[in-house]
Computed example of a mutant assay.
Amino acid sequence: MIYLWAFLIGGSICLFGQFLLDIVKLTSIQMLVTLVLIGIILDGFGLYEQLIEFAGAGATVPITGFGYSLVHGAMLNGENGLFYISDGVFELASTTIVFSILLSLIVAAIFKPKGVT
């Protein structure tokens, strides 16, 4: 049953992102920022943690999960003082950031852009 809920919740998040692109006519960057902000706001109110417990990877894999990990790390380390907030942000989100950069470099090394001959 957890797989069904992960699929439905993750699919609903992606469907909402597609709605923002097609119906609201946001650009890709505006849609990404909107979804990250939704994850941040939901974690600020303590709702995203409940969504993760309910849907598992269906809530952590979409881009809203990235916003959640940024804020959740800051909130956890923010208890230690103001200067520890940035450590917490990168503690939870570092894996996503590192793999995004590495994968981008690999793809850029293998493939040529469309306009280049």
Rank of each mutant, 00 (worst) to 15 (best):
N80W: 04
N80S: 14
L70C: 14
G65Q: 08
V71H: 04
G67N: 04
G78S: 11
N77L: 06
V71D: 01
A57C: 06
G78F: 12
G56Q: 06
G67V: 05
H72E: 14
F66S: 00
G81D: 11
A74E: 01
G58S: 08
G73F: 03
L82S: 13
G67Q: 02
T64Y: 05
P62N: 01
G81N: 10
G65W: 03
L70T: 12
E53R: 09
P62F: 02
F83R: 12
A55E: 01
G81Y: 12
Y84R: 05
T60H: 04
G78C: 10
A55N: 01
E79S: 09
D87R: 09
L51G: 08
D87I: 09
L76N: 07
F66C: 02
Y68D: 02
S86N: 11
V61R: 00
G81W: 13
Q50S: 12
V61W: 00
E79W: 05
L76M: 09
I85H: 00
I63R: 06
A74P: 04
S86P: 12
L76K: 08
A59F: 07
G56C: 12
D87C: 04
L51H: 08
G81M: 14
N77Q: 02
F66W: 05
N77M: 05
Y84I: 00
V71M: 09
E53C: 05
L51P: 08
S69V: 01
E53T: 08
G67S: 05
S86K: 11
H72G: 10
I52L: 13
S69C: 01
